[in-house]
Amino acid sequence: MLTNLQRGNFRAKTPEVHSEERGLHQLAAQGQFAMLEQRLKEHNSDVNATDKHGLTILHWAAAYGQAQTVNFILDNNADVNVVGNHEMTPVLLASARGHADVLARLITDGADVCCTDESCTTALMYAAHGGHHHCVQLLLEAGSDFLATNSNGRTAFDIAIAFAHTTVQQVLENHMCMLFESG
């Protein structure tokens, strides 16, 4: 049996990316908040500056579940309801990926839990689609509209059923029952 070297195959080298070469958005996605803080101060950068996709460092940190970085960014006056391309907001990204700790901080700082993307998909729908019951619970407690429909006419409950996310379905049913009993 021939080895890779005998066949003429060489191990590919991954290029090293030095920290000074990484952009602010990449640092936010990787949770490098200390380095991010240093770079923001050195370059007097705006925490609400967008990348070529219209996303801020808060979008990136929220999407990748970097709770400490999200805290740092919000503590430095980032716009919690900043809207990027395709009408994406940090709360939509955190909900889609199931980052409940990040979502909780965004909600605490006044994130709009009823915002929608360009297809009228809400954070609650994203969380239901991903089966993220903790995010669903947080969003319902914060006043998310569970009756809202997306451009396909589906609610978060419809989505939970379609993807067989029974725990999410149960959280939504419990919420509906609670509203019915209190009303």
Score class of each variant (00 low, 15 high):
Gly23Ala: 10
Thr56Pro: 08
Gly153Lys: 08
Val91His: 07
Tyr126Ala: 02
Cys114Trp: 03
Asp109Met: 09
Leu74Ser: 06
Met88Cys: 03
Asp101Leu: 10
Ala100Val: 11
Glu118Trp: 06
Ser95Thr: 04
Ile107Leu: 07
Leu2Ala: 12
Met88Ser: 05
Leu138Val: 11
Cys115Lys: 08
Val91Thr: 07
Asp101Gly: 07
Leu92Ile: 08
Lys52Phe: 12
Leu58Gln: 05
Ala128Thr: 02
Ser45Ala: 15
Trp60Pro: 03
Leu74Asp: 03
Ala61Ser: 14
Leu103Ser: 00
Ala63Asp: 08
Thr166Asn: 13
Ala111Ile: 00
Ala128Leu: 05
Leu36Ile: 13
Val102Gln: 03
Asn44Glu: 14
Asn4Phe: 08
Ala156Gln: 08
Trp60Leu: 13
Asn77Cys: 10
Ala96Glu: 09
Asn44Met: 09
Ala61Asp: 08
Met35Arg: 09
Glu141Ala: 11
Gly84Gln: 04
Gln32Asp: 09
Gly153Cys: 08
Val70Cys: 04
His18Asp: 09
Leu93Gly: 01
Asp145Val: 05
Cys120Leu: 14
Asp46His: 13
Gly131Arg: 09
Arg11Glu: 12
Gly84His: 02
Gly143Ala: 06
His134Glu: 14
Leu124Ile: 01
Ala96Ser: 10
Gly98Met: 10
Leu139Gln: 02
Gln66Lys: 10
Gln30Asn: 14
Cys115Asn: 05
Thr56Asn: 06
Val171Pro: 00
Gln66Met: 13
Asp75Gln: 11
Thr122Ala: 06
Val47Gln: 02
Leu40Asp: 06
Ile159Gln: 01
Met1His: 14
Leu36Ala: 09
His53Glu: 15
